[in-house]
Amino acid sequence: MSTIAERIAAAGTGNAIELRGVSRYFGALAALTDITLSVRPGERRAVLGSNGAGKTTLLNCVTGDFPPTSGTVRFFGEDVTTLPPHERIRRGLRRTYQISLLFQRLSVRDNVYLACRGVSRGRFSFIRTRASDAIMQSVHDLIALVHLERVTDRLVGELAHGQQRQLEIALALAGAPRFILFDEPAAGLSPNERGDLVAILTALPAHIGYIIIEHDMDVALRVVENVTMMHNGRIFKEGAPHEIEADPEVQQLYLGGGHA
């Protein structure tokens, strides 16, 4: 009886991301303790917390960059806890990185092309892709989406910081993403570039949900429906942006010094 109920619960929740009892230890140090979190398809969620609260570790457990010490990770109902990162990517999960981890010695076009090719067939193909190929069309669409048309042929190593952050987002949008994890996308951006970023995020198709980790509350709270607050590797509050902003505990812990 209970097993059937469990199975229905597991398969039928319809959640995009479902973490149950996820913990992650580094030696004796607990980076995450018993995290249970669900995010609906298409939902946009911010994860906030001070430095060392475990936000990036949480993303790493979801993507499989390193596996959780205990607990399960489900992606659209499927248990992906033990799958390697590239298998999760092929199921429609994407992420961006806090420090730009791009291909510095390749052009912008090649970077986006690799991302598109990575989630399609023919990764090992020895035949060059023609300019008329459908994949090249989507490469140029993505470059246009993040406003990088004018630097398509430049090497990534030569781009400005803000442009690298935009490219970072283009890589995460390649293929058919179902859910994206943004790790501090606004870090190091000028106020103007932050405006562009908010525009890009809010213009994403409605079916694509995301989790965003961000220090800049003005960016984070404008692009999400729900907020999860983390502290010392645990979740301590969830709610809508206006509730979180009004919460006295949150203000004391997180918004206090930095936001004044």
């Binding site: 990517i89 981890l101 510095q104 090719r117 990575g118 090992f124 193909s125 060059r128």
Partner: peptide, 23 residues
Amino acid sequence: APFGLALQGVRDNPRRMEAIGYN
């Protein structure tokens, strides 16, 4: 070709290649 470009991606950043779907 895709194979060679992916190889250069592996050279520049193996971890990111994993993260965009390559083995």
